[in-house]
Design a protein around this nucleic acid. Structure first.
Lengths: 348, 348
DNA sequence: TTGTATGCGTTATCAA
DNA sequence: TTGATAACGCATACAA
């Protein structure tokens, strides 16, 4: 039983305090606490016990200053209220926790300016790495290229900037978009619209590409007035759909492929308001398999993305990049699956 | 135009580097960068320009070591896949971003052991404060009391430990539970079950209290075999409901009040599997107004909680506690509202 | 207005 | 096995 002379309030006890308490040096305490092996058994025991009693908590700030490692990763997401992202975070959390890291969660609110600000902040906090899914108006690739040149590792997930040598974890967007568009074609649709994303991010480009390719390969006409930019949020989907609905009746689409499910929900609302039925008057499909999609009054046909796995893959990739200098950048495309429900008209 | 002799890769530039570059002292650079006012206009300009060109990024780790402030808050949630929590986080994010703080997100996965571990880690990272919603088996109040004694501020939200002098931001659970139970009584229900939460957290206790009180005040019998612990997750709701369904037919409840919506979803599944209809054979209500609740095939009657506001209030309270020594602990009860949908049988 | 010394809490390094 | 010293990057306090 060791009596502590100066009982400190937890949270402010330092190595020095423990050292003074026991009449040893701070270094010895450090070594004992870190189990370096070079401390006498008896001394180590006394130190451990005293540290416990004094409520010692290592100061990771000081540790980080010395080690230049924070064991903290930044995660930047554009919109936490899309169910896809919390699920990705669950996956990330699982991996980083096991590996002894923490995450700082930052939210860009679909705004590139705010995105850069939060990334700068993460960099100032000296996170060991960053996982990011870009905002809808992210354009400045050089911003990320410059970061990639530093010793801060970075990995994109879902919404990537491609071809700048930074890892990207997502699904095969192009192929999936192709498949779901072809599904509409097989259902007899011939005037197919696309509510496209924004900016230069991968999913905007690749989902559009897959869409166009499917039309082309199946000799279905492409109508440029049926490709409307909607961004990635419900509101944008609603507004983009309004534009399509304002077309003369014979020019209206018979099917709509939305870049993601929230956009499809917005479109759904506009279609309902116009008094049209889904899928009879207009088929509608999305992408991402939002938690609400199977529950809508007309369940939404969509592409299921393995969000949790995207999270685990992104996190393990990032940690490997941090911990292993020889680890290479890579593009990981997980398997997505077509979820046929009712909004496409297949199950009538 | 200033020529930089030693172009550093961004992220590793220090005050000293900039100072050497310009032949001034590090302190002058520090002052210039912090706009302390005591630097000559010309010098300051040169410093700012050089810092920009060299890609200087302040090292918040070092700053924090000196200032003992990290401008980082820990947020501990039990289950990120309940839509309530991401919405709370959105609210928190909004406030902390405006005030210049960051958040470290930690996930206890409904496990008290993990909860303590992540809190210890947050403390080691010297967060300025912690917002926490307890796990379902959190029991150790003294753990939090001890933290409250230190200079790390702490605030509970939604799931609190009460009466230990720590702020709690939530809704009036007891009153809301009373109201929704009385609603069932007014609908003629007389054998009402409660799927109760777990542990010592506020919502378990208060929702049960409100439930019992409503029965009592309205002279409706309480049946102890109809109060089953379910925890807070869907699975627990499913299993608890199975127990009720195994009761002899005449002893089964005619209505069920679940401690939250995920539990109600689990119960819903069990009821469906048993071939019973909601609400005809058994009414069902929840609490929290999950994003899925209005979309279920039988939309769920529930209590709506202002999740976003709970987040903003919790964050502003915490920041005030951090920044103002005279700020007092308080219990904030926001307004919740009864959302009558179809699962209770009112809209038939 | 600018610079020097010192300390924040920890660890690497070298010496004893 | 233990200790003294310096360093991590910055800011406070004081001196010039």
């Amino acid at each position: 039983m060791i009596e502590i002379r100066s009982l400190k309030v937890a949270g402010k006890v330092t190595l020095k305090h423990i050292a003074d308490e026991l009449g040893v040096s701070a270094m010895t305490v450090s070594r004992a606490l870190n189990n370096s092996g070079s401390v006498q058994g008896k001394t180590q025991e006394r130190i451990l016990e005293t540290a416990r009693q004094m409520g010692y908590r290592p100061n990771h700030i000081a540790k980080s200053l010395v080690s230049r490692r924070t064991y903290t990763l930044g995660v930047v997401i554009p919109e936490i209220s899309h169910s896809f992202f919390p699920e990705v975070i669950r996956g990330i959390e699982q991996v980083v926790y096991d590996k002894g890291y923490q995450i700082i969660l930052a939210h860009s609110s679909e705004d590139a300016v705010r995105e850069q600000e939060v990334v700068e902040m993460l960099l100032s906090k000296r996170v060991d790495g960053i996982m990011i899914s870009c905002s809808q108006n992210t354009e400045d690739a050089s911003f990320f290229e410059n970061i990639a040149k530093t010793d801060t590792r970075i990995v994109f997930f879902d919404r990537c900037i491609e071809d700048i040598g930074i890892s990207c974890i997502g699904v095969n967007d192009r192929n999936a978009a192709y498949k779901i568009t072809e599904h509409l074609i097989n259902l007899g649709k011939r005037r197919i619209a696309h509510l496209k994303g924004s900016g230069k991010v991968s999913i905007t480009k690749n989902r559009l590409l897959g869409f166009e390719e499917a039309l082309h390969q199946n000799r279905v006409n492409t109508f440029s007035e049926l490709i409307i930019e909607s961004g990635f949020q419900e509101k944008g989907g609603y507004e983009a759909m309004k534009i399509l609905l304002d077309l003369p009746t014979h020019k209206r689409p018979d099917a709509v492929f939305a870049v993601n499910d929230p956009v499809a929900f917005g479109a759904m609302e506009a279609i309902n308001e116009a008094g049209l039925r889904i899928p009879e008057d207009m088929a509608l499909v999305g992408f991402s398999d939002d938690i609400r999609s199977p529950l809508m009054s007309v369940p939404l046909t969509t592409i299921h993305q393995p969000a949790y796995d995207i999270g685990t893959k992104a996190a393990s990739k990032l940690i490997r990049l941090i911990e292993n200098d020889k680890e290479l950048q890579e593009k990981v495309m997980l398997i997505s699956t077509l979820k046929v429900r009712e909004s496409c008209g297949a199950n009538q």
